[in-house]
């Protein structure tokens, strides 16, 4: 059996050549290429871009909020500045992602030597030394970011603050949810630059 030239399996009226002839032929021929209407697509794209540009933040995400924390809200908070991040939970204290203290049975620790957080102090001291080594001549700013759940008792926050103070971190930015306004010092700087 010799080689058979392949042919169309469908009836001739459904063959592509006949279809093409019918579409582009001299009598009643229609344009074969169909244009997709892109106007609506560009409209949608434009709206998405406008929304995203309006919400764009040049500073980026400074910190990730711990999943166990529901932040308190405030309407007059200032912009966040990058500093070491302390997270206060009812179970413990986290500094830059690493556990540095245990808060369980905190009531028993109030008058105890445990009130201080030695691991946290050591870590804070390391950050301070690193800053001073990297920025010789500059005064240590003592800035830190603190996040805590809105419903937590102040005692837990106080314990972290006590340790922060012992290491000279006296300027604390308490993280809140809400749109930030420019810090008065930064606003003054921006005005001076104009």
């Amino acid at each position: 059996m010799g080689i058979i030239k392949p042919e169309y399996h469908l009836k001739s009226q459904f063959d592509l050549p006949s279809f093409r002839d019918r579409m582009t032929g001299p009598v009643g021929g229609r344009k074969l290429s169909a244009d997709l209407n892109l106007t609506s697509l560009i409209d949608v794209f434009s709206v998405i871009i406008l929304f995203l540009v309006s919400t764009f933040s040049a500073t980026g995400q400074i910190l990730l909020v711990n999943k166990d924390i529901k932040l308190p809200s405030a309407q007059h908070g200032y912009t966040l500045k990058r500093s070491p991040i302390v997270t206060v939970l009812e179970t413990g204290i986290i500094l830059e992602g690493a556990g540095v203290g245990d808060n369980t049975d905190i009531e028993d620790k109030v008058e105890d030597v445990d009130w201080s957080l030695p691991k946290m102090r050591a870590q804070l001291r390391t950050y301070k030394e690193f800053f001073l080594a990297a920025n010789s001549g500059m005064p240590f700013p003592g800035e830190v970011i603190l996040q805590a759940d809105r419903g937590i008792e102040f005692l837990y926050v106080k314990r972290a603050m006590f340790t922060l103070l012992q290491e000279g971190y006296s300027k604390i930015d308490l993280v809140v949810s809400g749109e930030a306004v420019l810090r008065p010092t930064d606003a003054a700087g921006a005005d001076a630059n104009l």
Binding site: S57, G77, Y78, L80, Q166, K171, I172, L174, V176, S177
Partner: peptide, 20 residues
């Protein structure tokens, strides 16, 4: 823009704890 978008609006309440 989606990759760099910041969805959480966070701000800071600055406090000063005075001398050590």
């Amino acid at each position: 823009l989606i990759a760099t978008a910041v969805w959480d609006q966070l701000s800071a309440v600055p406090i000063q704890l005075g001398s050590t």
